Simulated assay, not measured.
Amino acid sequence: MTSRAWGRAALRLVFALALPAVLVAVWWVASAGSTNVYWPPLRTVFGAFPDVWTGERLRGDVLPSVLRLAAGYAVAAVVGVALGTVIGSRRRVRALCEPVLEFLRAVPPPVLVPVIMLFAGIGDMMKIAVIASGCVWPVLLNTVEGVRAVDPVLAETARSYGITGVARLRDVVLRSASPQIFAGLRQALSIGIILMVISEMFAASNGLGFTIVQFQRGFAIPDMWTGILLLGLLGFLLSVLFRLAERRVLGWYHGLRESGRRSP
């Protein structure tokens, strides 16, 4: 990596960390003299963090939450891309499914938690189903739009060269729609984290959502705030990992955009 590339990377890191650092500093100063039991000083929250989130609690609460999130997110990604590709490729199928999709999309996923509990019980399957039911919509709808937006000239050229079947689906349709698909996957990730917490607040014996509620009910307010901060850190880490994966998979797309910006 050249010195110029290192400089750009350092500058991006500074911009990424500047606002969080300012917000933490403001929170620290604003809460420094707080005597409100529900708004403890940030130094108290930081002091409680290592005592609360020990290795045992990370294995017993954080790991199950992450595994449920990963399972529900994976199911939503597979189902969303598969159905979105079919619906986006077939005009009649799209016309038939569009009213139903709009109706189901308008139903907030947390409302479905009691219904899903009736069919899936209160175990991990319920939580995975809740996460998948909310994450699938941005993936599906963005896939539909991405498939619909495939360049007809490109599609016709592929047909002229005899690129059909699986090869056409992989190299033409999904490749052209992949930027839109990843936009849906990015939206689904934040939705999945929210639904992970909500599902664990309803009926669970472990997990981040369950633990935060237990702290709140026991009036362990600094411990509750550490759970909220840990959720934010988890969301940030997953976002970084997603961006790295996106840059790797869509390297060709970002390269085209960069070359387009440089061209006169």
Rank of each mutant, 00 (worst) to 15 (best):
S3I: 13
R4M: 08
R8T: 11
R12G: 14
L17K: 01
L23N: 00
V24R: 14
V26G: 02
S31R: 07
T35V: 11
V37W: 12
P40Q: 10
L42D: 10
A48H: 09
D51V: 12
W53I: 04
R57E: 13
R68Y: 04
A71Y: 03
Y73T: 09
V78I: 03
V81M: 11
L83E: 07
A95Y: 08
L96Y: 11
L96D: 00
F103L: 15
L104S: 06
V107Y: 09
P108S: 01
V111R: 03
V115Q: 07
V115D: 06
L118P: 06
G121L: 10
I122K: 00
V130L: 14
V130M: 05
V136K: 05
P138M: 07
T143W: 02
A149N: 12
P152E: 06
T157N: 05
R159Y: 08
R159I: 11
I163E: 04
R170M: 08
P179A: 14
L189H: 03
S190C: 10
I194H: 07
I194M: 13
I198F: 10
I198A: 14
S205E: 12
N206F: 09
N206I: 04
Q214D: 14
Q216I: 12
G218F: 14
G218H: 11
W225I: 02
W225D: 02
G227A: 07
G232M: 02
L233T: 04
L233P: 02
L234R: 07
G235I: 01
L237F: 11
V240S: 05
A245R: 00
R247C: 07
R247H: 05
R248T: 15
V249K: 08
L250A: 08
L250M: 08
G251N: 08
G255D: 11
G255W: 06
R257Q: 15
S259P: 04
R261V: 13
